[in-house]
Amino acid sequence: MKLVPKEIFTAFMVLFAVIDVVGNIPIIIDLRKKVGHIQSEKASLIAGAIMITFLFLGKSILNLIGIDVNSFAVAGAFILFFIALEMILGITLYKEEENSVMTASIFPLAFPLIAGPGSLTTLLSLRAEFEVENIIVAIILNVIFIYIVLKTSKRIESFLGSNGISIIRKVFGVVLLAIAVKLFAENIKVLFN
């Protein structure tokens, strides 16, 4: 097992940008108002478990249906590209269904808000480039950060204000856009060689 700090940091930043837990604070607060209480521990642990499970089983599922990781990484690059556009331009390309059930900590918070299509696709895209141990550490660090944000979402929102959250979303959107372009370029080369 070889942990590489640079890989951990890059994987952490990519997942952090895709999950966009800071940008989702208004949604989290709205959910809290609707259902009264969000179980931060449960939501964080379930999201982490979904991501780690998909990291290991995702490749097997792809092999079962005859898709290689590089093709999936290119598809992932497109998804990251559109998520980045949403973040930068403040538009919504993908609309989540609203569901105010009692299990809000699991659905829609843990899945699909935290461990959604974007983050799951990203994990397999990262797997095409990085060692699994480094990605797992990045997932765990993100889960810890998600837990802290969920616990302190009201304080964070009042501290940053809507302008602060908007600026953070746009900055991470630009970072994510650059990562999507890099991911696409590297994996498309492999597919055409």
Rank of each mutant, 00 (worst) to 15 (best):
E133I: 08
L80G: 06
E86W: 10
I144Q: 03
A77V: 11
T103I: 13
I139A: 04
V132P: 15
A138T: 10
Y94F: 15
P108I: 10
G116V: 05
K151H: 01
Y147K: 02
S105W: 10
V149F: 10
N142E: 09
I156S: 02
I79Q: 07
A75R: 03
I146G: 06
L80E: 05
G90D: 10
A75K: 04
N163L: 15
E97D: 14
N142C: 14
T103L: 09
I135V: 14
V74N: 04
G116N: 03
A110K: 04
F78V: 15
E96S: 13
P112C: 12
A104K: 08
V137T: 10
I136L: 13
S158E: 14
E96V: 12
N142V: 09
T152A: 10
L89I: 02
I83C: 06
V74F: 12
K151C: 10
L113P: 01
N134S: 15
V143G: 01
E131R: 14
L85D: 07
S125V: 08
G76L: 03
G118R: 03
A115P: 06
F145I: 11
R155F: 13
V137W: 05
T121R: 01
Y147L: 07
I135M: 11
L89D: 07
L141N: 06
L123A: 05
S162L: 12
L150A: 06
L89P: 05
E96T: 12
L80H: 05
P112W: 12
L93N: 08
L93T: 09
V149S: 09
N163T: 15
V149N: 07
A104D: 13
